[in-house]
Every structure is written in C-alpha cells, then in structure tokens.
Computed example of a mutant assay.
Amino acid sequence: MTAASTDVIRRKIDRARPTQAEGAPGADRGWRLALARAARDAMGLDLDFRSLTIARQSLAEILETVPDRALLALLDGPQGGLGVIMLGATVTATFIEKQTLGRLSAQPPVPRKASRIDAAMVAGVIDRALQGLDEALVEEADLVWAGGFRYASYLEDARPLGLMLEDEAYRVLSAEVVLGDGGREGRVILVLPAAGRGASPVLAPDIAEADIPQFTEALSAQVMQAGCRLDAVIGRLVLPLHQIMALQVGEVLMLPTAGLDRVSLETVEGRHLVPARLGQHRGMRALKLSEAVTGRSAAPVVLRPLVQPASEEPPAELRAAG
C-alpha cells in the first residue's frame, strides 16, 4: 500500500470519527446533573436527558434556532456577560403544571406562548440549575465560561436578542429532555458567551505539600454551613392569659409600632438581629436589610399590649383597609 493511499484512508477515518463536544465532559456532565436535580428538588419532577450537544455558534445562528413559543430568559453573568436560556413550550407548560397542580395530567399540554407569569414561576428552577452547574464545575476548566450566570429578566420574543447580546461566539448547550413518567419531550437550550469571563476553578491542593487544617478551623467551617431559621416579625403583642381567654370575635388588637418599613429579623428565640423593610423580588415576598448583621446581642422587641373592645369604633386607617 502506497503512502498516498494510506493518507486517504487516514483522512476518511478521521472524518468519520465523531468530534468531542466542546467543553465536554465538564459542562456536559455538570448541566445534565444540575438541571435534573433542580427539577427534582424544586418540583419533584423527573427530568432525563435524551441527548445533549455542545457547539460553538454565532449570534446569527442562534437567532435562527429559537424554538417556537419558547420561554426566553436573559441571564446575567460575570463582568457584564449576558446569556440566555430557552425552554421549549412543552417544558414550560410541564413546569407550570407541576407547580400549580402538583401532578401531570395524562393529556399533553396545549402549546401556547410563554408569559411573564410563567417566567416568574420558573425563575427559581433556572437559578437552582445554574447554581448546581457552578457547584459541579468548581474544579473544572469549564467554570470560566459556564459559571456565575443567574436569571435576569424575561423576553417576550427573540427580536431584542440581536441588540442585547454582543456579536461574538457563544457556546450553545442544546438538550432534548424527557419529563415525568408520561414521557413528555421538549428542548432546553442554554446559550453562554464562549469567551471565559468567570472565576478560575479551585484546584484541589496537593495533600503532600498542603498543611493539614486544624480541627477548630474544620469544625468552624462545618458549623457555618449549618442551616439557621430566621423569623420576620412585623409586630409582636404580649397579653395576659386571662385577657387572651376573654377575646371575642370582632375584637381589634392594636400594633402601634408595626409597619412594612419596620420589620424585625429575629432568631427563633426572639433575639433581634437587624431591622428590615418588607417588599417583593421576582414576584415573591422579600426583605431588604437596613443594616449589616453583626455579632452583637440585642434584647427582643416587645410591644405594649393594647386591646380595643369590639364595641369601640376602629380607627379610620383600619376602616379604609377593610
């Protein structure tokens, strides 16, 4: 066999060999695990991947592959980088149905255009999946371009993407997923800038060269990761037991110092930590802290009990509130 014929055969073999997806196996494996766990933990929904491809595409190519009636969510990333996640109509409808009804019907959902309310309901699942991707890539090189993104806003259609996204190369993770036991199928497309702008991965230190951490430091790290419940208290009222037993229907209990801008963030024991203001964030109730939380101790806030008999006329502000 001549050298020329050998080169021809070698080129044919190389052309037939499938190319490894760019960014695999780190981003490939990480996104599979992160999205499946987010659907399971947030909604109790089984999500399996039928296929996942990772490719480098231009902005023009991305705009041509937007699924019909897809939910488009803009993602905010490190150093001002922007990405986008596209949920197919079946995926969006299944997420909403599982959250609202707690189960999936036997009939497939009717295709419809996603709304801003739909985006608000799935924003938590998207953020949970992206956070899981960060955790899966903490020691992977793909963390530089795939890490640090979170839900930013909802887009009604794909037209603004041509103006909002920079005209650069993007890494596109296109997945075909199966939802629930009914075998519903849909698409999930994650588009992130190919140029890495995120933090570098944290490489595992060499145990032979690294110093062994002290027991107290390791214990402190474990304790600081433990969960802690905090209560947001708008007002507190302390009454004698005989006065509580004498309460009647229609009686009004006055909270003179209560207010939406005077919320107290407290521990389960009633210790005041920091003042806050009640508001909302992405359609959910939220607290905005008025100052930083410190290690100082403070006495619990106790309001003087005031009871207004039912026979007395309630104040004007209560009558206006109904």
Rank of each mutant, 00 (worst) to 15 (best):
Q243R: 14
L203H: 11
V263I: 15
L260R: 11
I207K: 09
R197N: 09
R262G: 03
Q225P: 01
L260T: 12
M224N: 01
I207G: 10
I234H: 10
S200V: 00
V268S: 11
E217D: 15
S200E: 07
I212M: 11
A221Q: 09
I234N: 04
L241K: 13
I212C: 01
D206Y: 14
L253M: 05
V238H: 02
S264H: 11
E251M: 12
M245P: 00
L255A: 12
V252L: 15
T257Y: 05
G198N: 02
V233N: 12
V202G: 02
Q243F: 09
S220G: 13
T216N: 07
C228K: 06
P240Y: 00
R262E: 05
V202E: 04
E266G: 01
E217V: 14
A218G: 03
M254N: 11
G259H: 15
I244M: 07
G235Q: 00
V238Y: 01
E266C: 13
A226S: 15
A218V: 15
Q222R: 15
E266Q: 14
A226K: 12
P193F: 03
P193H: 03
G227I: 02
L237M: 04
A195N: 05
Q214F: 05
A246K: 11
G196E: 07
E209R: 13
G259I: 05
Q248P: 00
P193S: 06
A226I: 01
A221L: 14
Q225S: 15
Q248A: 08
F215H: 04
V202N: 05
G227K: 05
G198P: 00
I244N: 03
L265R: 06
I234M: 15
V238K: 03
I244H: 07
A226Q: 14
R229H: 07
A199H: 14
D211V: 04
S200T: 03
S220F: 07
E251N: 07
L253P: 01
L230Y: 14
S264Q: 08
H242T: 13
L239P: 04
E266I: 02
I234S: 10
T257E: 13
A204K: 01
E269K: 07
